[in-house]
């Protein structure tokens, strides 16, 4: 599956990419499988999105899919079909107090 991921500006800079990242992710497409594919292709991002040891999402980042906040959903929960098909991107967003 070709998955589209949108990174925040500073992580795009670290990874040396412009715009969206496209990843090959085997089903089922979940937050965990996307992040593992992302970190596999861009190891410089390890530790910047989720903790090295606990693998928990860093507290000031949020995950969105199809205009919904998935940050508090289980990491192995299947993401919407639109993300799994590549129709919609998976968004990694820096949390800004006040929105």
């Amino acid at each position: 599956m070709k998955i589209r991921v949108v990174l925040p500006y500073h992580l795009r800079t670290l990874a040396g990419v412009n715009g969206e990242v496209t990843l090959e992710v085997a089903p089922p497409v979940t937050q965990r499988s996307i992040l593992e594919a992302l970190e596999g292709c861009y190891p410089m991002l390890r530790g910047t999105i989720r903790d090295h040891v606990t693998q928990l999402r860093r507290p000031m980042l949020r995950f969105f899919a199809c205009e919904e906040d998935w940050s508090l959903e289980p990491p192995d929960a299947p993401l919407p079909d639109a993300v799994a098909s590549g129709a919609e991107p998976f968004l990694i967003v820096g949390a800004i107090a006040g929105g």
């Binding site: 861009y42 190891p43 390890r46 530790g47």
Partner: peptide, 21 residues
């Protein structure tokens, strides 16, 4: 761990160094 121009993964597919760990 990821010098410019080098692949970011090992031949086995594992990510290279974790300099921020």
């Amino acid at each position: 761990g990821t010098p410019p121009g080098e692949p970011t993964t090992t031949p086995e597919g594992f990510p290279k160094g974790e300099s921020n760990k």
